[in-house]
Each structure stands twice: as C-alpha cells, then as structure tokens.
C-alpha cells in the first residue's frame, strides 16, 4: 500500500499523469488530492518516482527537523526524519524505537494500533538477540563502506557465531 506523496497518510487516489508523453504516477490521500486537483494541472504536481517524492518533512522548521534527526533507531541507525521522507522503516526494531511517534500515524492510517489476527504459532525467539543481529549487520555495512576491513571481519565472525546459536535453538 502506498503512502501519500505529500503527507504520511495512506494514498487513496492513484493518478497517472501524462507529461510530455510520459506517464507519471502520483499517489495522494483524499485531502491532498483535493488541493492537487484544485491547482492548475501539472504546475504544482509532485514529480513521481522514488527520487521525486514530496517530502512530508517539507513543512517543518529547522528546530523540528533537528528533533526528527535526533530520533535514531539504535539497531539500524535509521533516523525518524529519514523514515518521514522515505516512508520506509529500516528494521523491525524501528517499530519500538519510534513507537511513540508511530502510534498516532498508525491510528491515522488504520484507525487502530493493535494487531488482531494471525500470529506465528512458534513463539518468537529472544528479540534482543534478533535486534543484535540486525545491528551487527548494519555495523558491518558501515565498516565495509569505510573500508575498515579488520573491523568488518570481526563483525562477520560475530554474526556467524550469533547466527549459529539462533539456528541451533530454533531447531530444538
């Protein structure tokens, strides 16, 4: 399901625009669609595609943006600001790290904040360990990007060790 290109709500209108013979897609919630349709065709239209998403942070001041920047998922280092501009969370732990900020958003999208439905029959294993695996993988990604290969090798070993412990427990 897509997010409105202009705000965090769910898009209910999916518009395909023809500009210079090329099709561009715009996803909008009802409110934003109203203002979109009122504006003269094309001029204020958000550019489509992942790079051209209208940032939902665009209406915020400097101080607010800084506050969003400081909210960071400890596991994958995604900031709440990144989430607001891309509409995607970085890992499962983001849901806990940003819980307070996410709940009103979920309420807005779904009209509810509690899962009611299927759940995995097998009890999920220790979430701390899973988060640690995600964190190690993120550290590894950064280490490789910074060309710290010794660090990367150490992290890889740690991942393998933790991974094998998790697997052996899962099969018990």
């Amino acid at each position: 399901m897509s997010k409105c290109n202009r705000c965090p709500k769910v898009a209910t209108l999916h518009i395909t625009e023809l500009m210079k013979g090329e099709a561009h897609e715009v996803h909008l919630c009802e409110e934003c669609a109203q203002s979109y349709l009122q504006n003269s065709a094309g001029e204020n239209a958000p550019a489509a595609g992942p790079g051209g998403l209208i940032k939902s942070t665009s209406g915020l001041g400097e101080a607010e943006l800084e506050a969003l920047e400081k909210l960071v998922c400890p596991t994958c280092k995604t900031t709440f600001r990144e989430f607001r501009s891309q509409g995607r969370l970085g890992c499962a732990h983001c849901y806990s790290a940003f819980r307070e900020e996410l709940l009103p958003l979920l309420e807005n999208i779904h009209g509810d904040t509690h899962h009611c439905g299927k759940f995995p029959k097998r009890a999920p294993d220790d979430s701390q360990k899973r988060y640690q695996l995600i964190k190690l993988r993120n550290d590894l990604r950064l280490a490789v990007a910074e060309e710290s290969y010794e660090e990367a090798a150490r992290l890889r070993d740690q991942i393998h060790e933790l991974e094998s412990r998790t697997t052996s427990e899962a099969s018990e």
């Binding site: 596991t75 994958c76 280092k77 995604t78 891309q86 995607r88 969370l89 970085g90 890992c91 499962a92 983001c94 999920p124 294993d125 979430s127 899973r130 695996l133 995600i134 993988r137 993120n138 590894l140 990604r141 490789v144 991974e163 998790t166």
Partner: peptide
Amino acid sequence: AQFPFLSRADDGV
C-alpha cells in the same frame, strides 16, 4: 526477523 528491512540492506545482506 534476523535481517534489516531492505532500505537498510546492502548488496551483501
């Protein structure tokens, strides 16, 4: 559960 979502996954992950 043990992997980050795809926005945080590099080619290796």
